[in-house]
Protein backbone atom coordinates (compact mmCIF):
# COMPACT_ATOMS: atom_id res chain seq x y z
CA UNK A 1 0.00 0.00 0.00
CA UNK A 2 1.26 3.44 -0.95
CA UNK A 3 -0.10 4.80 2.31
CA UNK A 4 2.55 3.06 4.38
CA UNK A 5 5.49 4.56 2.54
CA UNK A 6 7.15 6.91 4.95
CA UNK A 7 8.12 10.24 3.50
CA UNK A 8 11.58 11.44 4.25
CA UNK A 9 14.06 8.79 5.31
CA UNK A 10 13.92 9.12 9.07
CA UNK A 11 14.83 5.94 10.95
CA UNK A 12 13.95 6.02 14.63
CA UNK A 13 16.89 4.98 16.85
CA UNK A 14 18.07 6.05 20.25
CA UNK A 15 21.51 7.42 19.43
CA UNK A 16 23.68 10.41 20.21
CA UNK A 17 23.26 11.70 16.66
CA UNK A 18 19.46 11.42 16.84
CA UNK A 19 19.40 13.50 19.99
CA UNK A 20 21.51 16.36 18.70
CA UNK A 21 19.89 19.73 18.14
CA UNK A 22 18.63 19.73 14.51
CA UNK A 23 20.01 23.25 13.99
CA UNK A 24 23.48 22.04 14.93
CA UNK A 25 23.15 18.99 12.70
CA UNK A 26 22.16 21.09 9.72
CA UNK A 27 24.97 23.56 10.36
CA UNK A 28 27.59 20.84 10.83
CA UNK A 29 26.40 19.01 7.72
CA UNK A 30 27.09 22.11 5.64
CA UNK A 31 30.50 22.46 7.34
CA UNK A 32 31.39 18.80 6.68
CA UNK A 33 30.44 19.16 3.02
CA UNK A 34 32.69 22.21 2.71
CA UNK A 35 35.62 20.47 4.43
CA UNK A 36 35.22 17.31 2.36
CA UNK A 37 35.69 19.54 -0.69
CA UNK A 38 38.60 21.34 0.97
CA UNK A 39 40.48 18.09 1.66
CA UNK A 40 43.00 18.24 -1.16
CA UNK A 41 45.28 15.25 -0.62
CA UNK A 42 44.83 11.57 0.13
CA UNK A 43 45.72 11.91 3.81
CA UNK A 44 43.25 14.64 4.64
CA UNK A 45 40.52 13.03 2.55
CA UNK A 46 41.03 9.62 4.19
CA UNK A 47 41.01 11.29 7.60
CA UNK A 48 37.71 13.12 7.08
CA UNK A 49 36.23 9.95 5.52
CA UNK A 50 37.26 8.03 8.62
CA UNK A 51 35.57 10.70 10.76
CA UNK A 52 32.44 10.29 8.61
CA UNK A 53 32.41 6.54 9.23
CA UNK A 54 32.82 7.20 12.95
CA UNK A 55 29.70 9.40 12.81
CA UNK A 56 27.83 6.68 10.90
CA UNK A 57 28.82 4.26 13.64
CA UNK A 58 27.53 6.65 16.34
CA UNK A 59 24.13 6.93 14.60
CA UNK A 60 23.46 3.19 15.31
CA UNK A 61 22.04 2.75 11.80
CA UNK A 62 23.52 -0.17 9.85
CA UNK A 63 26.07 0.52 7.11
CA UNK A 64 23.91 -1.50 4.76
CA UNK A 65 21.16 1.11 5.02
CA UNK A 66 23.64 3.86 4.26
CA UNK A 67 25.08 2.06 1.27
CA UNK A 68 21.60 1.71 -0.22
CA UNK A 69 21.82 5.41 -0.93
CA UNK A 70 25.13 4.94 -2.72
CA UNK A 71 23.73 2.32 -5.03
CA UNK A 72 21.56 4.96 -6.65
CA UNK A 73 24.50 7.17 -7.57
CA UNK A 74 26.77 4.45 -8.96
CA UNK A 75 26.26 5.78 -12.52
CA UNK A 76 27.44 9.21 -11.41
CA UNK A 77 30.49 7.68 -9.71
CA UNK A 78 31.39 5.66 -12.81
CA UNK A 79 30.92 8.68 -15.05
CA UNK A 80 33.12 11.02 -12.97
CA UNK A 81 35.75 8.32 -12.46
CA UNK A 82 35.94 7.68 -16.20
CA UNK A 83 36.23 11.35 -17.03
CA UNK A 84 38.97 11.83 -14.45
CA UNK A 85 40.81 8.69 -15.53
CA UNK A 86 40.74 9.69 -19.19
CA UNK A 87 41.52 13.36 -18.96
CA UNK A 88 44.38 13.62 -16.53
CA UNK A 89 47.89 13.14 -17.85
CA UNK A 90 50.94 12.63 -15.69
CA UNK A 91 52.75 9.75 -14.08
CA UNK A 92 53.44 6.63 -16.08
CA UNK A 93 51.33 5.43 -18.95
CA UNK A 94 49.40 2.32 -17.94
CA UNK A 95 47.20 1.59 -20.87
CA UNK A 96 46.71 2.93 -24.33
CA UNK A 97 44.33 2.07 -27.12
CA UNK A 98 44.03 4.50 -29.99
CA UNK A 99 43.37 7.89 -28.48
CA UNK A 100 42.56 6.45 -25.05
CA UNK A 101 45.51 6.83 -22.70
CA UNK A 102 45.32 6.09 -19.01
CA UNK A 103 48.03 7.32 -16.67
CA UNK A 104 48.65 6.49 -12.99
CA UNK A 105 47.64 10.00 -11.96
CA UNK A 106 44.33 9.42 -13.74
CA UNK A 107 43.66 6.32 -11.65
CA UNK A 108 44.63 8.23 -8.53
CA UNK A 109 42.25 11.08 -9.35
CA UNK A 110 39.41 8.67 -10.14
CA UNK A 111 39.83 6.96 -6.75
CA UNK A 112 40.06 10.33 -5.03
CA UNK A 113 36.80 11.58 -6.59
CA UNK A 114 35.02 8.31 -5.81
CA UNK A 115 35.94 8.51 -2.12
CA UNK A 116 34.94 12.17 -2.04
CA UNK A 117 31.50 11.55 -3.58
CA UNK A 118 30.85 8.57 -1.29
CA UNK A 119 31.74 10.59 1.82
CA UNK A 120 29.46 13.41 0.70
CA UNK A 121 26.53 11.06 0.23
CA UNK A 122 27.17 9.25 3.52
CA UNK A 123 27.40 12.41 5.62
CA UNK A 124 24.26 13.85 4.01
CA UNK A 125 22.38 10.61 4.70
CA UNK A 126 23.22 10.95 8.38
CA UNK A 127 21.07 14.08 8.53
CA UNK A 128 18.12 12.63 6.68
CA UNK A 129 18.20 9.32 8.57
CA UNK A 130 18.45 10.83 12.05
CA UNK A 131 16.26 13.94 11.80
CA UNK A 132 12.48 14.03 11.40
CA UNK A 133 11.20 16.30 8.63
CA UNK A 134 9.46 18.40 11.27
CA UNK A 135 12.69 18.94 13.17
CA UNK A 136 14.40 19.82 9.94
CA UNK A 137 11.76 22.43 9.15
CA UNK A 138 12.15 23.94 12.59
CA UNK A 139 15.92 24.00 12.14
CA UNK A 140 15.64 25.76 8.79
CA UNK A 141 13.21 28.30 10.25
CA UNK A 142 15.49 28.96 13.16
CA UNK A 143 18.67 29.21 11.05
CA UNK A 144 16.93 31.63 8.69
CA UNK A 145 15.52 33.70 11.54
CA UNK A 146 18.36 36.30 11.42
CA UNK A 147 16.73 37.40 8.14
CA UNK A 148 14.03 39.10 10.21
CA UNK A 149 16.48 41.91 10.86
CA UNK A 150 16.33 42.56 7.12
CA UNK A 151 12.55 43.05 7.42
CA UNK A 152 11.84 39.53 6.19
CA UNK A 153 10.20 38.20 9.36
CA UNK A 154 6.93 37.40 7.60
CA UNK A 155 8.70 35.79 4.66
CA UNK A 156 10.67 33.45 6.93
CA UNK A 157 7.57 32.54 8.88
CA UNK A 158 5.52 31.94 5.73
CA UNK A 159 8.22 29.71 4.27
CA UNK A 160 8.37 27.64 7.44
CA UNK A 161 4.58 27.39 7.64
CA UNK A 162 4.42 26.27 4.02
CA UNK A 163 7.01 23.57 4.66
CA UNK A 164 5.14 22.39 7.77
CA UNK A 165 1.84 22.16 5.89
CA UNK A 166 3.47 20.48 2.88
CA UNK A 167 4.97 17.82 5.15
CA UNK A 168 1.65 17.33 6.87
CA UNK A 169 -0.26 16.87 3.61
CA UNK A 170 2.11 14.59 1.71
CA UNK A 171 0.62 11.40 3.23
CA UNK A 172 -2.93 12.71 2.76
CA UNK A 173 -2.28 13.48 -0.91
CA UNK A 174 -0.62 10.12 -1.50
CA UNK A 175 -3.68 8.42 -0.07
CA UNK A 176 -5.92 10.56 -2.24
CA UNK A 177 -3.89 9.77 -5.39
CA UNK A 178 -4.29 6.11 -4.56
CA UNK A 179 -8.07 6.51 -4.34
CA UNK A 180 -8.34 8.50 -7.56
CA UNK A 181 -6.19 5.94 -9.40
CA UNK A 182 -8.41 3.11 -8.18
CA UNK A 183 -11.58 4.89 -9.20
CA UNK A 184 -10.20 5.76 -12.65
CA UNK A 185 -9.12 2.15 -13.08
CA UNK A 186 -12.63 1.08 -12.11
CA UNK A 187 -13.86 3.27 -14.96
CA UNK A 188 -11.57 1.42 -17.33
CA UNK A 189 -8.52 3.67 -17.43
CA UNK A 190 -5.30 1.81 -18.11
CA UNK A 191 -2.16 3.23 -16.63
CA UNK A 192 0.45 0.55 -17.18
CA UNK A 193 0.10 -0.10 -20.88
CA UNK A 194 0.99 1.83 -24.01
CA UNK A 195 3.89 4.04 -24.98
CA UNK A 196 5.31 6.99 -23.13
CA UNK A 197 2.91 9.56 -24.60
CA UNK A 198 -0.08 7.36 -23.88
CA UNK A 199 1.01 6.87 -20.29
CA UNK A 200 1.54 10.58 -19.74
CA UNK A 201 -1.94 11.20 -21.16
CA UNK A 202 -3.32 8.58 -18.76
CA UNK A 203 -1.95 10.63 -15.86
CA UNK A 204 -4.14 13.65 -16.68
CA UNK A 205 -7.40 12.15 -15.32
CA UNK A 206 -5.52 11.61 -12.05
CA UNK A 207 -3.75 14.94 -11.81
CA UNK A 208 -6.77 17.12 -12.50
CA UNK A 209 -9.02 15.72 -9.74
CA UNK A 210 -6.02 15.77 -7.42
CA UNK A 211 -5.39 19.43 -8.16
CA UNK A 212 -9.03 20.37 -7.67
CA UNK A 213 -9.29 18.54 -4.39
CA UNK A 214 -6.05 20.13 -3.19
CA UNK A 215 -7.48 23.57 -3.83
CA UNK A 216 -10.64 22.62 -1.97
CA UNK A 217 -8.54 21.23 0.87
CA UNK A 218 -6.44 24.37 1.09
CA UNK A 219 -9.60 26.44 1.30
CA UNK A 220 -10.92 24.37 4.21
CA UNK A 221 -7.53 24.43 5.89
CA UNK A 222 -7.43 28.21 5.62
CA UNK A 223 -10.80 28.44 7.38
CA UNK A 224 -9.64 26.07 10.11
CA UNK A 225 -6.46 28.10 10.61
CA UNK A 226 -8.41 31.33 10.73
CA UNK A 227 -10.76 29.80 13.30
CA UNK A 228 -7.76 29.02 15.45
CA UNK A 229 -6.72 32.67 15.55
CA UNK A 230 -3.95 32.40 12.96
CA UNK A 231 -2.70 35.84 12.08
CA UNK A 232 0.63 35.21 10.35
CA UNK A 233 3.85 35.77 12.24
CA UNK A 234 2.16 38.54 14.24
CA UNK A 235 2.28 37.75 17.97
CA UNK A 236 2.98 34.06 17.36
CA UNK A 237 5.18 32.28 19.90
CA UNK A 238 6.40 28.75 19.21
CA UNK A 239 5.78 26.18 21.94
CA UNK A 240 8.83 24.14 21.05
CA UNK A 241 12.04 25.63 22.38
CA UNK A 242 15.43 24.48 21.23
CA UNK A 243 18.35 24.50 23.63
CA UNK A 244 21.93 23.42 23.20
CA UNK A 245 22.90 20.81 25.75
CA UNK A 246 26.25 19.20 26.60
CA UNK A 247 25.97 16.66 23.78
CA UNK A 248 25.69 19.51 21.30
CA UNK A 249 28.74 21.35 22.62
CA UNK A 250 30.71 18.12 22.62
CA UNK A 251 29.76 17.31 19.02
CA UNK A 252 30.58 20.83 17.96
CA UNK A 253 34.03 20.59 19.57
CA UNK A 254 34.61 17.17 17.99
CA UNK A 255 33.78 18.55 14.55
CA UNK A 256 36.09 21.53 15.03
CA UNK A 257 38.92 19.09 15.80
CA UNK A 258 38.11 17.05 12.67
CA UNK A 259 38.10 20.18 10.52
CA UNK A 260 41.38 21.47 11.98
CA UNK A 261 43.15 18.14 11.49
CA UNK A 262 41.90 18.04 7.88
CA UNK A 263 43.39 21.48 7.22
CA UNK A 264 46.68 20.59 8.98
CA UNK A 265 47.00 17.39 6.89
CA UNK A 266 46.31 19.49 3.80
CA UNK A 267 49.19 21.80 4.67
CA UNK A 268 51.68 19.16 5.85
CA UNK A 269 51.54 16.86 2.82
Amino acid sequence: MIKDVSFGQYISKNSLIHKLDPRLKLFLLIAYIIFIFLASNAYSLLFITAATFFILFLSKISLKTYFKNIRMIIPIIIFTSLLNALYSGGGTLLFSYGFIKIYTSGIYRACFMTVRIISLILISSVLSYTTTPTDLTDAIESLLSPLKYLGLKNAVHTMAMMMTIALRFIPALIEETDKIMSSQKARGASMESGGLIKRIKALLPILIPLLISSIRRSYELAEAMESRCYNGAEGRVRMKEMHFINKDYFSFAFSIVVFSVTIILNILF
Binding site: M225, R228, C229, Y230, G235, R236, V237, R238, M239, E241
Partner: peptide
Protein backbone atom coordinates in the same frame (compact mmCIF):
# COMPACT_ATOMS: atom_id res chain seq x y z
CA UNK B 1 -1.18 25.92 17.06
CA UNK B 2 -3.98 27.95 18.69
CA UNK B 3 -2.08 28.92 21.87
CA UNK B 4 0.99 29.74 19.75
CA UNK B 5 -1.08 32.13 17.65
CA UNK B 6 -2.44 33.75 20.78
CA UNK B 7 1.11 34.43 21.90
CA UNK B 8 1.25 32.35 25.06
CA UNK B 9 4.66 31.52 26.54
CA UNK B 10 5.99 28.04 25.67
Amino acid sequence: FGPENLGFTP
